[in-house]
Nucleic acid binder design. Structure first.
Lengths: 148, 148
DNA sequence: TTTCATGTAACATAAATAGTTACATGAAGC
DNA sequence: GCTTCATGTAACTATTTATGTTACATGAAA
């Protein structure tokens, strides 16, 4: 089963957006995500509905953050994308089969618990803290500021 | 993203297999899983490699458990299926981008933790315990044994 | 030596996702 | 007001992945 990387992509784009003072067009976002503008607009529509970003049409328009980085948790972004977290599903081929019911009940408990844990962890991480974790020491200086 | 229900299906079939004293053909297994024999043979090849089931060719052949239900954990079956657990993946569009790296590092931690929890939970559940949880009170009696 | 079942390759189908084209909507600038 | 630029979204195409199917070789029992 293929994994869904929309959350990773969305977070990446959001952090680049945070570094700008002008709105970011879907074309710029697409370039930064390695995809195309329509896919971005489609994906980010969910984030807009959640208030995480806002978009404006027309000249000088584009996308900007809807609130501060510190007020956006990874869980909120995940939720807004309506992305599946746990890949394990349950079979429902034989709705009346007690064996199938017992199997699904056993799986449900474990899966729900893991999903809840992941959501808690993602809820505890803000975009601001991810932003702060960027290792700026690796960024080559644009110009030599003759440090030291 | 679509969920993968192979674990649920495999567990279901294994429990039906446990209730029999003769080998179960892939055709019977397919009927019980709502799929077809080749898909079953393909899926269960992984379980055979893990020793969870054994298969024999020829007349009277088919599939049977490789060890006792109490010695098979849900985690072992999951592992044998080589099934993805967590659906969240990471983007690697811009390998050099520090922002992308920071995002993926943040996600990795949370995802790994949730995956580990789920595996622990699945490892703690044996097929025998799932078998024991089947609610036999709901099974209609085949014939009236004039109980009471 | 016939029958039955697995093992597996090769191919076909189906379903989900992503990408593309096209165009309506609306906001800025001239 | 008209042009330009950007979003919003529908409709379509392409790609990818998983599933289902056909075909046939292998091997064991009767």
């Amino acid at each position: 089963m293929k994994r869904d990387s929309r959350l990773s992509v969305a977070l990446h784009v959001l952090l680049h957006m945070a570094q700008r003072d002008t709105p970011m067009t879907s074309e710029e976002m697409a370039a930064c995500a390695g995809t195309n503008p329509v896919v971005i607009r489609r994906t980010f529509a969910g984030l807009r509905k959640a208030g995480i970003v806002a978009s404006t049409k027309g000249h000088g328009g584009g996308w900007r953050l809807g609130r501060a980085l510190s007020s956006i948790s990874l869980a909120q972004v995940q939720e807004a994308l309506d992305e599946t977290i746990i890949a394990l599903g349950k079979a429902e081929e034989m709705p009346g089969c007690l064996v199938e019911q017992a199997v699904n009940a056993a799986l449900d408990d474990a899966v729900d618990e893991a999903r809840a844990l992941l959501v808690r962890r993602l809820a505890a991480i803000s975009l601001a803290s991810v932003f702060g974790s960027i290792d700026t020491s690796k960024i080559p200086l644009a110009k030599d500021h003759h440090h030291a």
